[in-house]
């Protein structure tokens, strides 16, 4: 039944998730190795034993990169989860609670969008005294606007749809009709929106950590690693910046592609515009 493209998307989606899960797990296991210093092996260029080389304190960069990525992914999962739930609440509220609520929420969205994202993250991090809580709250509280708009639009459209209207006329309660006829349409939108939020969350977490507002310099976070690497660029330790960065890009890219693959699976009509349009 499934066509080739759908099968490809499904395989890709599963493979991407598996890879990311492995990175996350490996990072947790590597945590000890990431912090281990050994001055007998400092400043080694990438070799067979140390794939990503070692830094000036003799720490294995491969372990550090994995630990950092794992940390970023875990923070990304939590914050994007919170942000997506906020988006769901606000999006539904904007659509069903009347004009006033809609206006207030859209005003709030415009305000948040008006402050450059990183600046807002700096402000929130500052408000919470910097550190882990600052970066987690910052990322969680600033990513909801776009998904809120999507969900608001979807709910408004569903509210005017015939099947919803008819079910209401047939005497179904508001909640019953919403659960039966709205939820099945919202779940895919929400899931795709959630997954597509991860890459942004990860990028922003690493950026804010890179600037020194996020995780403390003792943590093996990807932003910390890249921020440290900046000092050694001039002395020629290029591997400190190159490999962790590539891994970060791959992670972000995989989340983005996985989200899009899932969208292709859940909203096949939109994906086949070429065939029908």
């Amino acid at each position: 039944m499934k066509n080739n493209k759908q099968r490809q998307a499904a395989v890709f989606f599963s493979a991407a998730l598996l890879f990311l899960a492995m990175v996350t797990a490996a990072g947790v296991l590597c945590r000890e190795a990431a912090l281990e210093t050994d001055f007998s092996r400092k400043n080694l260029a990438p070799c067979r034993e140390y794939w990503f080389g070692t830094d000036c304190m003799g720490r294995d960069m491969f372990a550090r990169t994995l630990a950092g990525l794992s940390m970023s992914i875990r923070i990304g999962l939590c914050t994007a989860g919170v942000s997506a739930c906020l988006a769901l609440l606000l999006g539904v509220a904007a659509a069903v609670m009347g004009k006033a609520a809609d206006r207030v929420i859209s005003f709030l969205i415009d305000t948040i969008m008006g402050i450059p994202h990183l600046l807002l993250l700096i402000l929130i991090s500052y408000a919470l005294g910097k550190g882990f809580l600052g970066v987690a709250a910052g990322v969680a509280l600033t990513h909801w606007p776009s998904l809120t708009r999507v969900i608001r639009g979807e709910v408004l459209q569903l509210k005017n749809s015939e099947f919803y209207q008819i079910s209401r006329k047939l005497g179904w309660g508001r909640g019953q009709a919403a659960a039966r006829h709205m939820l099945p349409h919202l779940v895919p939108q929400f899931t795709v929106g959630l997954i597509l939020m991860f890459p942004h969350a990860i990028l922003h977490e690493s950026s804010i950590t890179f600037l020194g507002f996020g995780l403390s310099a003792k943590q093996p976070a990807i932003g910390v690693i890249l921020s440290e690497s900046m000092r050694y660029l001039i002395t020629g330790q290029w591997w400190l910046a190159l490999f962790p960065g590539i891994m970060l890009v791959i992670t972000v890219l995989l989340f983005d592609r996985a989200g899009n693959a899932l969208r292709g699976l859940l909203e096949p009509m939109e994906n086949r515009e070429g065939v029908y349009g």
């Binding site: 890459p199 950026s207 890179f210 970060l248 972000v252």
Partner: peptide, 22 residues
């Protein structure tokens, strides 16, 4: 477009600095 959208600006800056300046 896909690649640059997934690349953090600060890392790209580091790479360019490494290649062109160092």
């Amino acid at each position: 477009a896909l690649l640059t959208a997934s690349t953090p600006a600060f890392w790209l800056a580091l790479l360019l600095l490494l290649v062109f300046s160092v």
